[in-house]
Every structure is written in structure tokens, then in C-alpha cells.
Simulated scan of single mutants.
Amino acid sequence: GVAGFRDTHQQARRVHALALAAGEHCDRVLTFREVGTVALMTTDLNAARLWVASTLGPLSADDEHCARLRDTLRVFLASGGSYTGAAAELTMHKNSVQYRVRKAQELLPRDLAESRLDVELALNLSHRLGAAVLSPA
């Protein structure tokens, strides 16, 4: 019905805004189901950037080293905290995953156990939007 159309149209507009903010970093095809949380967080891009910086601390730097650490930590958390699962998805050795996760945790301003949800959201936001929400290196 009309209400359903309005809802899906609004969702599509949010995903479109996310894609514009991500620029060339964006996937070619996105659905609200995949990126809805991130799309909702990009209504105020400046506020999102500040939040990512305060949540990730030095890990929010827009450089290659931090990008590797962020990606490893994101995949590790998405795999339920499994080093083996993350290693399989990243096609790297389990010990390398452990090393990177430890290095990433050292850069976080708060203990991961205290702020896991925020860290996961900030990692997903930075994964989808890249430089649009990261701190200049």
C-alpha cells in the first residue's frame, strides 16, 4: 500500500545518501537491510565523523595501517570473536589475526568489553564510508 511505498522510498533515499557520502568507496549495489543502521547514522555526517573519532580514537586515522587493523577487528567481531573464523574469512593465519586484534585494541580509547557495540558500529560506519568519517592521517 501507500504506507509501505513511503517507507521503502524513505529507506531508498537513506541508502542513496549513504552511497553519495561514501563516494567511490561505495559498493555498487546496496540494500537497506544490509546498510540500514549505517544509513541511519549518516544523517549528520559531521556528527558521525566526531563519534567515530571518539569511539575508535587513534584507530580512526585514515591510513593503510589503521585500515588493516580496523578491517581485521571488524571481521573478528563479526565472526563472534573467533580468531579462527576471522582468519578464514580474511585468508590469513590465526596468529596474524590475534596480533592485529591486539594492536587494534591498544589504540581504542576504552576497553573493548565496555564499548563493543559502539566499536562494531563505528567500524561498520568507517568500512562503508571510509574517508568521509575517518580522521585525516
Results as ranks from 00 to 15, higher is better:
residue 50 L to W: 05
residue 46 N to I: 03
residue 18 L to F: 11
residue 6 R to M: 12
residue 5 F to W: 08
residue 133 V to Q: 03
residue 47 A to T: 12
residue 11 Q to L: 02
residue 105 Q to Y: 02
residue 55 T to P: 05
residue 17 A to N: 13
residue 103 K to W: 00
residue 105 Q to M: 13
residue 105 Q to S: 11
residue 84 T to E: 14
residue 129 L to V: 06
residue 91 T to W: 03
residue 137 A to R: 14
residue 45 L to A: 03
residue 17 A to T: 03
residue 111 D to K: 14
residue 35 V to I: 12
residue 113 A to W: 04
residue 3 A to H: 14
residue 54 S to P: 00
residue 48 A to D: 04
residue 98 Q to I: 02
residue 55 T to G: 08
residue 45 L to Q: 06
residue 42 T to R: 00
residue 106 E to Y: 08
residue 65 H to P: 01
residue 43 T to I: 05
residue 130 G to T: 09
residue 26 C to N: 06
residue 47 A to V: 09
residue 23 G to I: 08
residue 30 L to Y: 15
residue 26 C to H: 10
residue 131 A to L: 02
residue 65 H to W: 01
residue 73 L to M: 05
residue 33 R to P: 00
residue 33 R to V: 12
residue 96 S to F: 02
residue 11 Q to T: 05
residue 15 V to C: 05
residue 3 A to T: 10
residue 127 H to V: 00
residue 52 V to N: 03
residue 133 V to L: 02
residue 56 L to A: 04
residue 31 T to Y: 09
residue 79 S to H: 01
residue 90 L to N: 07
residue 129 L to T: 00
residue 109 P to L: 10
residue 15 V to K: 02
residue 58 P to N: 06
residue 70 R to E: 07
residue 121 L to T: 10
residue 21 A to P: 01
residue 121 L to E: 01
residue 29 V to T: 12
residue 78 A to N: 04
residue 40 L to S: 04
residue 126 S to Q: 13
residue 117 L to T: 14
residue 64 E to D: 14
residue 32 F to Y: 15
residue 125 L to A: 11
residue 128 R to D: 03
residue 35 V to L: 01
residue 75 V to S: 02
residue 73 L to N: 09
residue 122 A to Q: 00
residue 11 Q to E: 13
residue 5 F to Y: 10
residue 79 S to E: 10
residue 52 V to Q: 00
residue 19 A to L: 05
residue 108 L to N: 01
residue 99 Y to P: 01
residue 112 L to Q: 07
residue 66 C to T: 15
residue 12 A to D: 07
residue 115 S to K: 02
residue 109 P to K: 09
residue 119 V to Q: 03
residue 110 R to S: 12
residue 103 K to R: 15
residue 93 H to Y: 03
residue 115 S to V: 11
residue 31 T to N: 06
residue 12 A to T: 14
residue 127 H to F: 15
residue 54 S to L: 07
residue 90 L to I: 10
residue 80 G to D: 04
residue 52 V to S: 09
residue 44 D to Y: 01
residue 63 D to E: 11
residue 50 L to M: 08
residue 81 G to Q: 10
residue 134 L to Q: 09
residue 74 R to F: 05
residue 93 H to I: 05
residue 84 T to Q: 07
residue 130 G to Y: 03
residue 15 V to L: 05
residue 62 D to Q: 04
residue 65 H to Y: 05
residue 9 H to I: 11
residue 126 S to R: 08
residue 23 G to F: 01
residue 80 G to Q: 08
residue 38 V to I: 11
residue 63 D to F: 07
residue 72 T to Y: 03
